[in-house]
Structure formats: C-alpha cells, structure tokens
C-alpha cells in the first residue's frame, strides 16, 4: 500500500527525492561520499540506459561520463534539482538523442545498403538478438521500455523523468512491446518449451 501525500505523490518517492536533493547539495559542496552514494544508485542505470539507447559501448561510456560530470558541475553551481533521477536521465537522454541524430546525419551522408535483420538462433546469442531488436525501435519507444523493463521504473517515474504524461508512457510501452513482439516472434515461439513461471 502506497502512502500518498497532498500532492498525490508517493510518500516514499518524495522522501527519496528529498534525500537525493540533499545528497546533491552536499556533493556540490565537495562531499565525495554523498556523490558516491548517488553514483552508486544511478551509475549503472545511466550507463545501461545510454548503452541500450545508442547501442555502442564507447559512445555510451562517453555519454555516461559526460552525464555525471555535468551533474556534478550543476551541483557545484548550486543548481536546484526537483529530482536527481530525472535530472540525470534527462541529461543522458538528451545526449543520447544528440548522438543518434549525429549518427543519422552521418549515415545520410554515406548511406549504407538496407539490410534485413534475420535471426540465426544457432549462431548468435539470443540476448544479443533482443538488444538488436530493441535498437530497431524508435527512440521514444526504446527509452520508455528501457526505463520500465530494465530499470523497473513505474509509469509515474518515467513520466516525470521524460517530462511526458503517464498516459503517453503507458501508450508508448504498449506499442513498443507490440513492435518488439513482432520482431522477436521467432525467439518467443522458441521460448514456448520453457516454463513461464
């Protein structure tokens, strides 16, 4: 059972946000353990988000590092953050989209032949197929799916992070999963033999 405050927000979430705001202020003041706490909490998530968004480890590493550098500088500047998580993911998301846009422009300059993605279950790792299938989704579907499925954020948290409505989050998650199901149909059919629970 969730406790909801007068603004309609989950009390636990509100407490976490307050705690994180305090940690961010302390980090800006030079408190390394405070920054470390936030880094431990969000470092792997931001990196995973970046990696699944851009699909390249080197670029994801740059984005992840840049995100925390930017965050720490904002802390030093004393910038007020309503939500540390939202702030981090907003930076990471913006940079991922910038990177993808740059890549798209680059690909437009030197177009490569269209290749159809085919499954070869015997050769390649299934998890690799799943990640590649995720990369085929449009970014706005991909980001909500990553935040929801990999990081376990609720629709409300994703809506806050991406600054969109909860309804849109829900809609995008549903449509993104539909597209994934279509792409991954061979794998899902192959998975029939396994137990569900």
């Amino acid at each position: 059972m969730y406790l909801i405050d007068s603004t309609g927000m989950n009390v636990t979430t509100r407490n976490t946000e307050l705690e994180e705001q305090e940690l961010a202020e302390r980090a800006g003041a030079g408190d390394e353990p405070a920054f470390r706490t936030l880094f431990d909490r969000y470092g792997s998530k931001v990196f995973r988000f970046s990696l699944l968004m851009v699909g390249e480890k080197a670029a994801a590493e740059d984005i992840y590092q840049d995100t925390f550098v930017g965050f720490l500088k904002a802390c030093r500047q004393g910038k007020k953050m309503y939500s540390v998580r939202g702030y981090l993911f907003t930076i990471a998301r913006t940079r991922c989209l910038n990177y993808l846009e740059t890549q798209r422009r680059h690909i437009e300059l030197a177009p490569e032949p269209e290749t159809h993605y085919e499954f070869d279950l015997a050769v390649t790792d299934i998890q690799d197929h799943v990640r590649k299938a995720l990369m085929k989704l449009p970014e706005h579907y991909r980001e909500v799916l990553v935040l929801c499925e990999y990081d376990g954020y609720s629709y409300e948290e994703i809506a806050e992070t991406l600054n969109i409505s909860r309804h849109i989050v829900k809609n995008r998650i549903y449509r993104g999963k539909q597209m994934l199901r279509e792409i991954l149909q061979p794998i899902l059919n192959d998975d029939d033999s396994e137990s569900i629970l």
Binding site: F39, S44, F47, Q127, R131, Y150
Partner: peptide
C-alpha cells in the same frame, strides 16, 4: 516471455570503465 527476455538481455551488458 518478452519481459523475461528483456531482463535476461540486461544482465549481460558490459559495465562502464570510468569509476566515481
């Protein structure tokens, strides 16, 4: 099944080289 495959694919992702 889709959620399970997504979760599995997330477990084998590489980790960042840069630390805190």
């Amino acid at each position: 099944r889709l959620s399970r495959q997504l979760l599995r694919s997330g477990t084998t992702l590489p980790t960042p080289n840069t630390g805190v």
